[in-house]
Every structure is written in structure tokens, then in C-alpha cells.
Design a protein around this nucleic acid. Structure first.
Lengths: 214, 214
DNA sequence: CGACTCGTTGATGGTGGTCAAGTTTAGTGG
DNA sequence: CCACTAAACTTGACCACCATCAACGAGTCG
């Protein structure tokens, strides 16, 4: 269930050929393509830099001994992830869907340091914001906050494509898959959202969604 | 209830006189003393550095519109806090008990940058670890994880002094004050912990506590 | 000593978890 | 292109855990 690595990631050095439809900067670094479920790194793996997402999406998570999973973050195209203290990773990182990554090795220079600090602080901020959602909001509020976050991260357009499964959403929000499904159905019945496919959602009443999330 | 500032913090420039029983390094920076409930900063306040805790404890939190509070972190003597992205704070920081702080202004130098990065990454790590607790563990496991964390941060001794109230613990763990109280009572009845005062706890069976937390 | 805050304990109910079908979607091979 | 299969998702019934409401006890300060 928790996605064993199904196939090896493919490394592509001739970047221009396979450049994703996104921005073409940083094209000189090799692009590695992962398919859905591929592990990018796991606890204990050497950590010597971070990753930039050319396209696709990544989940960062931890497991409890009995298999309970908490996804602490999703990262989308254009974002960076993978910076951790120490020289060993403490989390799992997996491709949520077909994903292209460029690895960025850490340079001990001042200006790159400032960028890394910014990255780390934003990561801390996101985690602490998410803590408020998971710790103090009910199922409807959590789903609402999640949808609004996705809208914002996909450019503000009301139509969003969710790369992740209901299980992923549940493990991110601290809910079960059934509760995620039920809550989405309730929002659909109320006309707040509309489905154009299981993972294609249109937020019809964003103001109502914002009101739900307080 | 949520601690309005009761009195102004006291700034002391002649540090040696009031040096706390802790370590005496960094004694050249002015020490500011806050009493329990004092606000250190709030959302919108200018952020231009971080704080080092000489003695006492600090809570970092956010509020929802209806007053629900999520404490995202406690910081104890010897630790640092207050680093945030951008030039404005987005959280509240308050003294949990009588607390002495030294403000550290950010220098744009390489070596200080590396220290800040480490600080930010550890903060992110802590928040993400806490996310697992709040998102995926039940009340007993949360309390257990909290107690073990406090033991570790107070030097590993089984006897710990909790500077924070039950309400604080609840707002940190995403539980109500009643559930915190009941869970602690249950652990006491089972002989896992022992009280030497309302906020003085002895962990009699740390291994059992670890087992509870998985 | 009285008033206040903080903490504990009890009774009750609701939200969301669990278990158990169904249903839809996507993927595979004939 | 369609049948078959497996995975993903939905929906329902039931129940447990924790929140809520309420009362009471303990500690603290004036």
C-alpha cells in the first residue's frame, strides 16, 4: 500500500530535450524523472543538498511503528524540498505522480546560504501553520483549508487538479480516507465545490470555503 | 484568559548582577526579564533577529478567529526562538513563566548564517515531528510523547518541572484541558508517573511510556 | 477568611474512526 | 474496442474517543 518503489527513476542529462512545459531555468542540471510512488529518499539516506521540482508533486512523510503515516508536506512544481539538519535524512520523500527533479548541491557561499535560510524558514512556517489546521480544526475546516491552499499554489484559478489520492489527503490532514470522501461529498452537495473527475475539483464558492475555514 | 500583558518586561543592562543560575556566556548582551504571561512579540511586530533564553520558558502560538489556540512550540532555557521569514512576525511569543531573554540581532555574515540555518532547520524538524504526534496519535500517546520530550529537554532526569499549565499542554497537543487532566490521572493510576506537586512529575516507568508512544 | 485561578472528576453527546459493502475508474490483455 | 481485474473511491451502520457542560476540590493571594 505505501508504494514500494515500482521502477528506478530515470536520469536525463540532455535536459533541453525533455524540458518540462514549466520554466526553463536551471536547465544545465540533470533532470531525473520519477514515476508515481518512486522513493526519492528515506530516513538514513545521505542528505547533501535539496531538490527543485520541475514538474509533478512530492510528499514528505513519517511512519509510526504500526504503519500510521503522517504526511508533513506536499511540494508542487516550482517549489524546493529536501533540506534537513544533519547529513542524514529523517523523512521519506516520494513522487506523488510523474515528477521531474533537479538536485541542487549546497554551496558554502553567503548568497546561497541566504536562499537556504529562506527555504528553511518557509518550511518551518508551513509546518507550523499546518499544525494549527491539524491540531485545532474539524474535518470540514481541514478539507477547506487544504483546497484553498491548493488553489493558491496552482495560481489562484478555481479549478484545481489534485495529484494525490484521498489516502494521501487523509494522511496529510490527520483524517481517514472515509472522512475525506464524506467531507468532499458534503461540500459537493452544498454546491461549494464541483467535480470534473475524481481528482479535478472546481471551487465554485471560494468565499464560502474561506468562511468555513474561519 | 489568553494572558494579556500584565506588566512591562524589565530590561537589565548590568548583566553580571542578575546573571541567571544557568550558563554565563553571552553576558554582554542586555538581559530582559519577563513575568509569566508577558508578550514577547505578536503578529505584525518587526522581526529583526532572534532570542536566546537564559532562563524560563516561552510558548509560540497562533489563534483562530474564534479564539481556538494552537501552541506550535515550547522553548526552554538554553534554546533559541523567534526567527521567522520576512521582516514581520506571524506568531505570538509569550513567557510561560518568569523568563530571561537576550536578543540576538542577525548579522549578514557567513558563519552566523550557518547557525541561523541550523536553527531554522531544527525548528522545521520539531514542527514536523510534532505534526506526527498531533495528527496521528491518540490522547495517551500525545501526553506520553510530551512527557518524554520534556524529560529529554531537561537533561534526561526522570523528574521534570512543567512550567506550563494544563491549558498550555492541551493547546500544544490539540486536546482539551479535561482530556489532559484525565490522561495524566490515568498514567498516575497505572504507576507510570508520579506527582510531587501539580507541575512536578516523576516518570517512574520511562520504558512503559516509550512503549505507549510506539 | 473569602475570592479567584487552576486542576480534577463525572455525565453525556457528537465527531470522526472502524468495519463492511458497493460503485466508479483506470489499467491490462485479448 | 471491449471484457476483465484491481485499485481507488463512495456510502452506510455502528461505536469509541474525546469534547462539552457542570460540579467540585486544591492552592494562592489579597
Amino acid at each position: 500500500m505505501h508504494a514500494a518503489t515500482l521502477a528506478r527513476p530515470i536520469e536525463i542529462n540532455s535536459a533541453p530535450m525533455v524540458a518540462p512545459p514549466g520554466r526553463g531555468e536551471e536547465g544545465h542540471r540533470p533532470l531525473t524523472v520519477y514515476i508515481a510512488g518512486n522513493e526519492i529518499y528515506g530516513p538514513g539516506d545521505e542528505a547533501n543538498g535539496h531538490y527543485h521540482i520541475a514538474f509533478g508533486a512530492v510528499r514528505i512523510y513519517r511512519l509510526l511503528a504500526d504503519g500510521r503515516r503522517q504526511i508533513s508536506a506536499f511540494h508542487m512544481a516550482g517549489e524546493s524540498f529536501g533540506l534537513e539538519p544533519g547529513d542524514r535524512h529523517q523523512f521519506f520523500a516520494e513522487a506523488v505522480c510523474a515528477t521531474g527533479l533537479r538536485k541542487v548541491r549546497t554551496l558554502p557561499a553567503l548568497e546561497s546560504m541566504q536562499g537556504l535560510l529562506q527555504l528553511a524558514l518557509e518550511g518551518m512556517m508551513r509546518a507550523q501553520q499546518h499544525l494549527l489546521v491539524v491540531g485545532r480544526q474539524n474535518a470540514t475546516e481541514r478539507i477547506g483549508a487544504f483546497l484553498l491552499d491548493m488553489v493558491e499554489r496552482q495560481g489562484g484559478l478555481p479549478q484545481i487538479e489534485l495529484p494525490m489520492s484521498r489516502q494521501d489527503i487523509g494522511d496529510y490532514l490527520g483524517l481517514t480516507i472515509e472522512t475525506v470522501s464524506r467531507t468532499l461529498s458534503k461540500l459537493r452537495e452544498k454546491g461549494v465545490i464541483k467535480f470534473h473527475g475524481l481528482r479535478s475539483v472546481e471551487v465554485c464558492k471560494p468565499s464560502l470555503l474561506e468562511a468555513i475555514c474561519q
